[in-house]
Design a protein around this nucleic acid. Structure first.
Lengths: 167, 167
DNA sequence: ACAAACTTTCAATTATTTTTGAAAGTTTAA
DNA sequence: TTAAACTTTCAAAAATAATTGAAAGTTTGT
């Protein structure tokens, strides 16, 4: 397989993976493209490589910047803007999980807390509901913290040991 | 908030969360409904509670069973089928992650391996591509194993300590 | 073997999400 | 201040995904 083919395959695959996880295909593709580029890429080039419109490129670049995983860059003497992606994968994971947590998990947790604290009366049905949603609340809260905790842990010896075991 | 309202809120929220993570809304809603039901529910009742068609209910129940997180149940003297959800949340997490890994991550890993092993020639561009996709391959492989590893770890003392720290 | 009581399938419809492209907006240099 | 070079916005169009409903399929009791 030659370079161009490999690059294209990677971008397509990353795009497909993204859309299966609720991230728009173009957004994932732009990110993929920037991840494997050794230098900043212009909007023009992104449009050209992915065969997408200017509007689409603009909106998805904005979204990627809002997620904090793509940055604008300016080149001396050039008028147009260039873009680079966060390339440190640990950093990338942390940022994505922070953002999804903030946008999706936290609001869901709020609702879970609300519904799990209703008066359960005496019916088995209602008791089961309260019990199950409480457990779910605890579980989601715990899961939501895992990545953050792992980053913290990374600084201490037990963390390092654990990380080693994961490899 | 009274029970019925809480239940509905929960089902809606779980459905919305599902669709943000690439799981069809109805599928997540049916799962939510079954999770908080203390007894098995018929297709008829699911249709009624979620206001969906028979075809939709049937297809999504099949999908949930394929994922291994919903089971058919038969009641003596009843002709129709009833459904229950996996209620143990650790078990649920393991099954979902196994399934998504099998369907989505593993195929992506295969491609990542392919594209990261091309001949890099001498250009900086190609070297960077190989380097970055290799790192990504390792990272995804590692992340893909985390949940499995955690379940294994759960059985030993270090694991228990670690799990405690997560809480 | 028949028919009642169910479930599944899938082509057509509907809903949702994404993408386009052209107009409006912004910045820079002269 | 003007105009060229560039970016953003957003209503309309296109693409994709989910849903319906009725026909076909299955199972069970008589």
């Amino acid at each position: 397989m030659e370079f161009k083919e490999a690059k294209n395959k990677f971008v397509q695959t990353w795009g497909a993976l993204g859309s299966q996880w609720g991230i728009n295909k173009t957004m994932a593709q732009i990110h993929a493209l920037l991840m494997v580029s050794n230098e900043a890429v212009s909007m023009e080039d992104i449009m050209e490589e992915l065969q997408i419109s200017r509007g689409n490129a603009s909106m998805n670049l904005r979204a990627l910047m809002d997620w904090g995983i793509v940055y604008k860059e300016f080149k001396a003497g050039e008028r147009k803007e260039f873009f680079t992606a966060e390339k440190d994968l640990d950093e990338l994971a942390v940022k994505i999980s922070r953002e999804r947590s903030k946008r999706e998990i936290k609001p869901a947790l709020k609702i879970l807390k609300e519904v799990s604290t209703i008066e359960a009366k005496d019916s088995a049905e209602e008791k089961h509901f309260v019990d199950q949603t409480s457990k779910l609340y605890d579980f989601v809260l715990k899961a939501d913290n895992v990545l953050d905790k792992m980053t913290e842990l990374n600084d201490n010896w037990l963390g390092k040991l654990f990380i080693k075991m994961m490899k």
